[in-house]
């Protein structure tokens, strides 16, 4: 699948920057929009824009966390077809299971290792 625009929902500025940098290394042509938390993401999607082809969603966030946001996304006919990749530092099986049940397409544990991060991200873009 060809991606031109994606949405990253993450409150951590470091993680935002790192994600963007790694993404631009693999796919410099893909545009990465950023929302600081779930509510901001919904507000962004509801504004008159082009829908992203992938949403990367963090779980631990202020204002509206990842699960709430996921519920809203999957409960809205306009957004529910957009694949949601959960990105989290947690590899808690409970969270993984819950996210899957709520309709998330994939669970991406942020690896600490830069090379592995890059490789995993590359594989995700290949598969979705």
């Amino acid at each position: 699948m060809n991606h031109t625009e994606i949405l990253l929902v993450d409150d951590d500025l470091d993680d935002q920057m790192f994600f963007k940098d790694v993404l631009s290394e693999i796919y410099p042509e893909i545009k990465c929009n950023i929302a600081g938390h779930g509510l901001e993401a919904l507000l962004y999607l509801n504004s008159d824009i082009k829908f992203p082809s992938l949403i990367f969603l963090d779980l631990n966030m202020p204002v509206m966390n990842g699960f709430e946001c996921l519920q809203k996304l999957k409960g809205d006919n306009r957004f529910k077809k957009i694949p949601v990749i959960i990105i989290s530092t947690s590899s808690n099986p409970y969270d993984m299971e819950k996210a899957r049940e709520m309709g998330a397409e994939h669970f991406f544990t942020k690896p600490a290792d830069y090379l592995m991060y890059k490789e995993n991200l590359f594989r995700i873009f290949k598969n979705f």
Partner: peptide, 20 residues
């Protein structure tokens, strides 16, 4: 342990990137 992970992961990620 959860909160400790975050800054540590970032140290790893950034140093890893610099080295690469």
């Amino acid at each position: 342990s959860h909160d400790l992970q975050e800054p540590l992961r970032k140290i790893q990620a950034f140093t890893g990137r610099i080295l690469d």
